[in-house]
Amino acid sequence: MKEIVVISGKGGTGKTSITASLAYLGADSMVIADCDVDAADMHLLMRPEAVSSEGFTSGVLAVIDQSRCIGCGRCAQACRYDAIPYRDGQYTVTPLDCEGCGYCARICPVGAISMVDQLVGEWYLSTTRTGASMVHARLGIGAENSGKLVAKVKNEAKQAAQEQGKQYVLVDGSPGIGCPVVSSLSGADFVVLVTEPTVSGLHDLQRVYQLVKRFQIPAGCIINKADLNGEVAAQIHDFLKNEQIVHIADLPYDEAFTRAMLEGKTIVEVSDNPIGEALSDSWLQIQTILGE
């Protein structure tokens, strides 16, 4: 079983649309994992129906037991996040400001503060319209994606793939360069970098590739809207060449992407357009690289 992770560094490059296209092409040879939990949009194209779901906790939050609190205010003094204001005659924790460091609980002289697991969202195991299973999650507002949540989604997907005897796990990776994307990449067999020829697209590609390189994972790149800016596209081509990244495909700027999305479809499903063909070819290339 091989794990393919799609990442982009920057938002709005078409990463999710491209991942969904690969998912459509791979159909039931795979299990899909949506680790782009902050902007989990893949379900709009794959239309998963949940088979099971479970709450997800991450980090802890301070809670003050008012019946035991003696109002000494040491917790409020110690808190660097101003998360324990004195209001209406008592100290209470503002959940959005609490970082979960636990300092207050450690120094409370009467043990009135406890750190409780924070329920931050839910994860689901679903079946999709292509026949593939999909693992995805939904976070509450102000909750942060974490390496732990990404690891959870990926683990569940891998387990499902093993049980079902699937060839691939396809991961829609997290954005940025922090802990969630490190966790997205960890254990991957191949990385697909999606970028666009804009000044910010190139900049973010270079940053995120530093991580891929550190993990020594073989990588390929799909350039979306490749004809938008020839100059920047040429800079991306040079970068790929220097770093020995497989140049998988150049996709033209085409509003067919959006038209397909409006129908709730991936671009490879709408009648013949150059992008659909290029992505079919991309999927073949990725399979060849992975030796299947």
């Binding site: 660097r80 996040y81 300092y103 450690r106």
Partner: peptide, 9 residues
């Protein structure tokens, strides 16, 4: 996260 717990404790 700069909570100071390790430093002050």
């Amino acid at each position: 996260h700069g909570c100071y717990a390790c430093s002050e404790l």
